[in-house]
Design a protein around this nucleic acid. Structure first.
Lengths: 329, 329
DNA sequence: CTGAAAGCGCTTACAG
DNA sequence: CTGAAAGCGCTTACAG
């Protein structure tokens, strides 16, 4: 392996000088700089990041913790971050918790040991343990998807989105609207979206049967099962279903189709997420689109600001949503 | 920051001894080990990976180069790798080329500077420049999706898969079969799949109009456009289309539906890839499934063998495919 | 069973 | 404008 010493020797300067030209810092005579550059060019020398990190305590690596790597949401978010980071030479160290929230804690620790400069956590819950770990973190953490006191984050306006969608359903003449949600440990998806639905229903004086509120686990199959339960247990007047995510809506869609019912004639079905599949099914699903790439980019920018400008930031950036009206409502 | 020196001091031993207990190497008396462990427990000390890497030249980080992060294929592949790596404490440094093959070279260099232990490259072409860079690499590289002389790889049997699908179409009574492919710089997708189609057609003495062979660029829209061109330029007897990827097949499907044609009644349409969407559209698409997660896992295992067992491996692992028969053929 | 010492490849005051 | 030297936090022969 070729080191800074080799370059210094071949260029006939000290390694201090070599370091200066590499990092473009301090004064170096044009002559010396050129000699060093030439030798670097000839040898193809690249500085050891480890040695450098050991000294400077900086790595230019950002740890990213995802709930699951193979989802539309994750990959779009990471994509957005990548664009921002790549331009300035940062790289991403990726870990996935595979939906195991214990692992969020574990990975948070792991990444710090790796001496990443910062961590972006696509969070699925807001537990106290998680908050504690974040507060204790030696490196800045920014949250995506959830908000926590004193922690910078970028989220979508889940409550407003759910309100908007529910209102739209009512405006279109639906009155007996069911809801497929997720566990409330997930504040954004589990609590806020549901609350939006509940509040709008109440404000319109609309009754909600117990059977109309079901819970899934984000998977397509769980949406299918939830829909099935809802139909079986319901008194029968159901004319619309709002699922907290497109994947669960897709499962519900599937069950309804299998029953030979018409969408939206018999039952309207809508989701949130704007997945690719939701666009191609028949009827194409009305949904709400979140700009995940933009969220990723925003998170990247926040962490960069903290790192490079050494700012104390605890911004909570809330991104807007856009309604995608198609044919299932 | 708390270091090995602090631990040594508090435990009343030398840092040599601390290092020994951390790494479970050499002799340490039970008493000393316990004291050290206790102090580590109390302090929450974690060794600096950089210092360690600087000495050992190992990082336990694998660089992964993807063509595009937000695709089904990529995320499934990465998922498969993650499972293997996670179990033994390796992590993944992810970079995406965003379909820019220049960047494959660039990232190959970049990752080496990051001192990754190895690189997994999800390749989209087999250019000489790429091969040269791989050969010159200081760390082992394993290829996914393409084969190159002397480089370990895991691929799918694209030629056999295309043959299989084309044969099936013919058996189902289709004779006028078009093909939507991609650029031939991509040997696996561009050349082998097309060759499978061509050979089977020839063997059955089936004629192929010029207009029946079109090219896309992997995107849904390009499949749509290719299908449109095919229909416009064709003499009219077309009764089936085989697209090299599900996404392009999806685009083609869309165009055919828009024309009010029946699938597979008027035209059958099939793809390769088994994307989620292909399962939910109407009619559900017949396709070929590749076990991407398994490919990722296989690649991870190969690189681990090279790294941990110090073997010289240039295995070419070829994974099988499975036909997913649905309703579009 | 244990420790002193050298060294991994850098950067950064400090002195000139 | 330049260099000698210290030091970042580890591991690993070597000697005892």
């Amino acid at each position: 392996m070729i080191t800074i010493n080799d370059i210094a020797e071949q260029a006939g300067v000290s390694r201090t000088t070599v370091s200066r030209v590499i990092n473009n810092t301090g004064y170096v005579s044009e002559k010396a700089r050129k000699r060093v550059m030439d030798v670097i060019g000839e040898t193809g020398y690249v500085p050891s990041q480890h040695a450098k990190s050991l000294r400077t305590k900086k790595t230019k690596i950002i740890g990213v913790i995802l709930p699951k790597i193979s989802t539309d949401t994750s990959s779009r978010t990471v994509n957005g971050m990548t664009e921002v980071f790549e331009a300035i030479g940062y790289q991403i160290l990726l870990t996935s918790t595979n939906l195991d929230s214990e692992k969020e804690l574990e990975h948070l620790k792991l990444l710090q040991n790796r001496q990443v400069d910062g961590i972006i956590l696509i969070a699925t819950n807001t537990s106290q343990a998680l908050l504690d770990e974040i507060k204790a973190s030696k490196v800045p953490v920014v949250l995506v998807g959830q908000q926590m006191a004193g922690v910078p984050s970028v989220t979508f306006d889940d409550y407003a989105a759910a309100r908007h969608m529910t209102t739209l359903m009512i405006e279109k003449g639906h009155k007996h609207i069911g809801y497929i949600g997720v566990d409330e440990a997930d504040r954004s998806v589990g609590v806020l979206r549901k609350q939006g639905y509940l509040d709008v229903m109440t404000e319109h004086g609309l009754h909600i049967e117990d059977a109309w509120i079901q819970q899934g686990d984000f998977s397509i199959d769980s949406g299918y099962d939830a829909m099935k339960r809802m139909m079986h247990e319901s008194a029968g007047s159901l004319d619309g279903v709002f699922a907290a995510t497109d994947r669960m809506a897709l499962g519900a869609w599937r069950y309804i189709k299998q029953q030979g019912l018409s969408i939206p004639g018999d039952i309207a079905i809508v989701g949130i997420g704007s997945s690719e599949t939701s666009r191609f099914i028949d009827p194409a699903m009305t949904t709400i689109e979140y700009a995940h790439a933009q969220a990723g980019a925003a998170a990247a920018e926040i962490i960069l600001q903290i790192l490079e400008e050494d700012k104390e930031i605890s911004d909570k950036k809330v991104l807007d949503f856009t309604l995608v009206e198609r044919d299932s409502l």
